[in-house]
Amino acid sequence: MNDVLTAADIFMLLVAVTGGAAAISVVISRNVVHAALFLVVTLLSVAGTFLMLGAEFLAWTQVLVYVGAVIVLILFGLMLTRAPIGPMAQHNENGHLAFGVSTLLFLFLCLVIFRAFGDVRLDLQYTGAAALGEVIYVEWAFPFMALGFMLTVALIGAIILARREEGEGPVTDLADEIPARDSRDVTASPGAISAGARAPGARAAGGGSAPREVQQ
């Protein structure tokens, strides 16, 4: 029985090979957008693997979060900054080092996994969303909430880091109602006029939000 390849086995093999090949392509691709697109294939393969292992919910989460959002963000970032068609000109000197490190890491992980699960045969069964929810929200409720709290803190921290101090840049507020030719046009470039030095009219327009920021 163990020697016979079932359809599921073949599919699993296919997904694994595709994912692996795509992962290698991500690294060796000279074109940064191609690399991101290969990453899509890799992540979809991972989702496929999850699916074959009976973790349906996890697979769709993988698709929704990674393919639907993270990759879109990556591509968004690439397009916003640089998106050259064709291979990138610059050569990375650390390639050999990275190759060595990643090979070592791969071998180490293989070793760990084989040592830990080498002769364990998992009895695969379908895990429904309800069962998963029960595990997360009942059994592991506290770690889950702690994780959520941590992520929220990280998010707020990121906002605080990214936020400009007063006088550092343009005061962002509900800019819809600010009259035309306002401060935003002028101060969009770095090193522009500071908030205090702006014209009284523009100051008045931004004045509403300034005290609020101090309170925060």
């Binding site: 509900l174 931004g206 004045g207």
Partner: peptide, 9 residues
């Protein structure tokens, strides 16, 4: 007194 920016209606 500075006028507050209008809130989105």
């Amino acid at each position: 007194m500075p006028t507050l920016p209008k809130l989105p209606r």
